[in-house]
Design a binder for these strands. Structure first.
Length: 592
RNA sequence: GCUCCCGUAGCUCAGCAGGAUAGAGCAACCGCCUCCUAAGCGGUAGGUCGCAGGUUCGAUUCCUGCCGGGGGCGCCA
């Protein structure tokens, strides 16, 4: 078997042995294959005997022994050994492992199988607000969503990213009114001969300042507030002048978003953007359909859905308000509209929402409602991929010293600046080359620090740790890869395809085992939508490489066979690290 | 009040379809550059896995309760 998790093959053999020994059919799960705990002299172990022993009525140890007696090693494994209370230790044969590595070295997919039935999957991520600068609150959604998109595509799925922009709602009345006034002031101040250029760009140099100005006016000036409210109505009723100003606002914001995405190397474009406003056209229909299906009812003047299974302890049902008593719609309605659109018009079979965990209840209720309405089915699933908050070193939500939200642009620039300083201290590259590398290192550090923690938990943002010269960081991986690249460069030779892998030192075999587990890492990462598992795998692999690098001279070994073998290990390791980093959305410079 | 999540080394985190002596990285201490990038490697020290019960041959992992922290809960999105 070239592609797939080796553990599956081992599980099959354990299952076969169990069948022969006890005439029992067990699943691959029940074979309980795990990578063996280190320093126990085995590559994998099966813990199947413990579960089986009870059914059969003999001791786990005896069960394990019977399994080993019927186990077919083929040329893949050494004879299995029983150990402890009933563990079956499995060790790959060196020659088999060597041939396997040789095959992986020439496999484009590095042993990773494509999914048998590709699906169209919507991934909803990033979702910044128009007329506001992107801030750390958007960081995780953007980074995790991007990585998931890459992972799913690598598996062979068709991914349709959707950037659900916050481009609608009552604040837009005040923003548009403010924009309108600023435009008037500017044109008054300009001299007659100046070309009446499209003025919005200069008017909104800083989106946050712009928003704050509008808010201040709204709070301080009742007449302005009135005009703002009128604007909301004008916007909703499609007033042309108002619509045009709104579009300017959206366009200007999208330019800003694009800058951030470019800096992050996140492949989101305006084509992926469908703002909340897009779904306005469907909202009355959503309410009507839910009423028709007897899912929506009037309650305290509002139209509500009370999906099954959501009560507030005292058995009062929890509502999804889909039309307010004033006739307006809420994000409950919009999310239902977006979901129906994605399921029906975009014909997705899965919809992933990469949104923070505080929204968990909301999505549960939206999905439950969509199920009752028939928009979601067995073959049309939605999944909330929640994530925790970014905390400051004080353990509270990350903020600036002034207490404001941290602008994403500032944060990313600082990451690059800090990387630049570090490179200046120790890089072998010239100033010109260092620029690109500083970008890769700085942005990589931010992304990796985010992705390497359990997605659902909060994590503490620390420059010191993420840009640390040592430890489990993006730089460590990038550095390991750069060293490999350097060796390969200096070898001045291509690795011949007919190279034989030989294990002369334990570090080589140790590395080989890690390399063979790339498919398992991808599998675990995608099924759980947990990028940190890929991070952990890459870190372990890079560590294994460091051990190899310390102990195994590549360019000047004892003989030519070793040189070729080691170069092949180098090349494969580099390919895996680069592919892994790529799936995390992180660049791997050839030199540091 | 109801509800969800979290609590593992001094710090930051893995591990948790129950399984062998609980792993990393920082920080501390001790070593290793006439040799492929020392942003590296090896070693020492550091843990009642919040507390108490329960299920089990076996629990950091599953269940219950408690303590501590955070989030969410009808007209913001």
């Amino acid at each position: 078997m070239l592609r797939g998790d080796l553990a599956n093959e081992l599980a099959r053999r354990i299952a076969d042995a169990a069948k022969e020994a006890f005439s029992l059919d067990i699943t691959l799960q029940q074979a309980v294959i795990r990578p063996s705990t280190p320093d126990r002299g085995a590559d994998y172990q099966s813990n199947a005997a413990f579960g089986l022993a009870k059914k059969i009525g003999i001791s786990p140890r005896e069960t394990a022994t019977r399994i080993t007696e019927h186990f077919h090693t083929g040329d893949m494994l050494d004879p299995p050994e029983v150990s402890g209370a009933g563990f079956v230790n499995l060790t790959l044969q060196d020659t088999w492992l060597a041939h396997h590595i040789e095959a992986l070295a020439t496999d484009k997919r590095l042993g990773t199988p494509e999914v048998p039935t590709p699906q169209r999957i919507i991934v909803d991520y990033s979702g910044p607000n128009v007329a506001k600068e992107m801030h750390v609150g958007h960081l995780r959604s953007t980074i995790i969503g991007d990585s998931l998109t890459r992972l799913l595509r690598f598996q062979g799925h068709e991914v349709v990213p959707q950037n659900h922009l916050g481009d609608w709602g009552t604040p837009f009345g005040m923003l548009i009114e403010h924009l309108s006034e600023k435009a008037r002031e500017t044109s008054k101040g300009e001299t007659g001969n100046s070309t009446p250029t499209h003025s919005t760009q200069s008017n909104i140099a800083d989106l946050n300042v712009f928003y704050q100005e509008a808010r201040q006016k709204f709070d301080a000036d009742p007449e302005f507030a009135d005009r703002a409210r009128t604007r909301v109505l004008a916007l909703q009723s499609g007033d042309q002048k108002t619509q045009s100003l709104w579009k300017d606002l959206v366009a200007e914001s999208e330019r800003h978003f694009q800058e951030v995405y470019d800096l992050l190397h996140v492949d989101l474009t305006p084509e992926n953007a469908r703002g909340e406003s897009f779904y306005n056209q469907y909202l009355p229909g959503i309410v009507a359909e839910l009423e028709e299906k007897n899912l929506a009812v009037m309650s305290e003047g509002a139209v509500c859905v009370f999906p099954d299974g959501f009560t507030n302890g005292d058995n009062t049902p929890v509502p999804l308000i889909i039309r307010k008593s004033d006739g307006g719609y809420t994000y409950d309605t919009t999310d239902l509209g977006a979901l129906r659109f994605r399921a029906q018009k975009l014909a997705a079979s899965q919809i992933f929402y990469v949104v923070g965990t505080p929204q968990r209840l909301h999505f549960k209720m939206v999905f439950a409602t969509a199920q009752q309405a028939g928009w979601l089915t067995e073959n049309m699933r939605a999944e909330h991929i929640g994530f925790g908050s970014v905390l400051g070193e004080d353990g509270k939500i990350l903020r600036t010293r002034a207490g404001g939200s941290v602008k994403l642009m500032d944060l990313l620039r600082e990451a690059i600046d800090r990387a630049t300083v570090i490179l200046a201290e120790r890089s072998e590259l010239n100033a010109q080359e260092r620029q690109d590398v500083a970008h890769a290192v700085g942005i990589g550090a931010v992304k990796y620090a985010d992705l390497c923690n359990d997605r659902e938990k909060d994590y503490v943002f620390s420059w010191k740790r993420m840009l640390a010269m040592e430890g489990n960081t993006a730089v460590y991986l990038q550095y390991a890869n750069a060293r490999i690249k350097s060796v390969v460069r200096k070898s001045n030779s291509k690795v011949p395809a007919d190279t034989s892998i030989v294990f002369a030192h334990p570090a080589e075999r140790n590395l080989a085992i890690k390399l063979s587990r790339f498919p398992a890492a991808i599998e675990a990462t995608t099924t759980g939508r947990e990028p940190h598992k890929l991070c952990n795998y890459l870190y372990e692999t890079a560590t294994a490489f460091s051990g190899f690098y310390e102990n195994c001279p590549v360019l000047h070994p004892e003989n030519e066979e070793l040189r070729a073998s080691r170069l092949m290990l180098c090349a494969l390791t580099s390919n895996i690290i680069e592919k892994g980093l790529d799936l995390l959305g992180i660049e791997a410079p050839a030199r540091l």
